[in-house]
């Protein structure tokens, strides 16, 4: 993109815009700063924390490191973001490729596309969804978090729009050479679609990492909760019922508030580390996939 607007003299309105945007940025990420600060504060001063930790201590983290329930849930979530996105990807590239063809090349393509698309705007609701999963034997089963959501239609649509922009000449040349569509997909389409693949992988990983509702209704045993469901029970639900089975008065520097903060921050951490790397891909993939 060409650069425009070269103002030599001092630009007051630009300064104003910059200050406003920085302030807004600060407000937007304030919850993250605050939770980090609370997690690093001592329990007696945690309620006064705004931006910076008070009575700096790492004891909340030390406590969480030895918290088995937290790490078991984290382990389940890690398994989930390995299995889930792999399945999602597998169930996205093949239908996306087929649906990216014209009706002339693949008769019935439009009907199939409608069946896929309709599922995103018309559903039977949460009760029959739950009962179907139970009938399929996936209740209280890790795979209940993976299989019912295996087909992510949004990802398929994004990918198929991306595939459509792959130059037809590449494919025609490959067909001349006797390649079949399986090879064309793997050797021509996938290598040029890295940005789109990265985008849907990111969405899928984020979706699985953040998924909590299915864990809550599909897992009977709390030992099978993924991380977000575990945190939902510990951080959100329990304080509301104002009951805690831990006697915090025996600890000096930590409380439910500071240890909760530490657990929340550890759960955000993978997103924080991961996200800047993926950002350049997903902005590209998102824009190309949605603008036709």
């Amino acid at each position: 993109m060409k650069r425009r607007r070269r103002h030599k003299k001092f630009d007051f309105s630009l300064l104003l815009i910059n200050v406003f945007l920085l302030l807004l940025t600060l407000i937007t990420i304030f919850p993250l700063i605050n939770i980090l600060a609370v997690s690093l504060s001592s329990s007696t001063m945690a309620s006064q924390v705004i931006f910076l930790p008070k009575g700096f201590t790492l004891q909340s983290y030390a406590y969480i490191i030895s918290n088995k329930a937290f790490w078991r849930a984290a382990g389940i979530s890690i398994l989930r973001i390995i299995a889930g996105p792999s399945v999602n990807l597998l169930f996205a590239i093949f239908p996306a490729y087929a649906l990216s063809k014209s009706s002339r090349q693949f008769r019935g393509r439009t009907i199939y596309a409608w069946i896929f698309f309709l599922s995103t705007i018309f559903g039977g609701g949460v009760v029959p969804w739950f009962m179907m999963i139970r009938a399929a034997g996936l209740y209280n089963n890790f795979w209940g978090l993976i299989i019912p959501g295996a087909v992510a239609v949004g990802n398929i649509i994004l990918l198929l729009n991306f595939f459509r922009q792959v130059p037809k000449e590449l494919e025609e040349a490959a067909i001349m050479d006797g390649a079949n569509h399986f090879r064309i997909l793997l050797q021509i389409y996938l290598p040029v679609s890295k940005a789109a693949i990265a985008t849907i992988l990111l969405f899928s990983i984020v979706g699985h990492w953040n998924g909590w509702f299915d864990g809550m209704v599909l897992m009977k045993d709390p030992e099978k909760y993924p991380l977000q469901t575990y945190l939902q029970a510990v951080v959100v639900k329990q304080p509301q019922m104002s009951q805690s089975n831990v006697d915090w008065s025996v600890y000096d520097n930590i409380s439910q508030k500071t240890t909760n903060a530490a657990q929340i921050f550890i759960s955000i951490l993978p997103m924080l580390i991961f996200y800047p790397f993926m950002q350049k891909y997903f902005v590209k993939g998102l824009v190309i996939g949605s603008v036709k």
Binding site: F91, A92, F94, P95, Y97, A98, L99, K101, Q105, F106, R107, G108, R109, Y112, I115, F116, S119, F122, G123, G124, G125, V127, P128, W129, M131, M132, I133, A136, I147, P148, G149, A150, V151, V153, I156, N180, H181, F182
Partner: peptide
């Protein structure tokens, strides 16, 4: 032959969609 492979690509996810989306939809109605 070329069309066949497209159906092969479509049907596994379509079956999943039918089981976990369209059957619950009909049962829901």
């Amino acid at each position: 032959g070329r069309q066949w492979i497209f159906h092969l690509f479509i049907w596994p996810p379509l079956i999943m969609l039918i089981i976990f989306h369209y059957i619950p939809l009909i049962q829901g109605i």
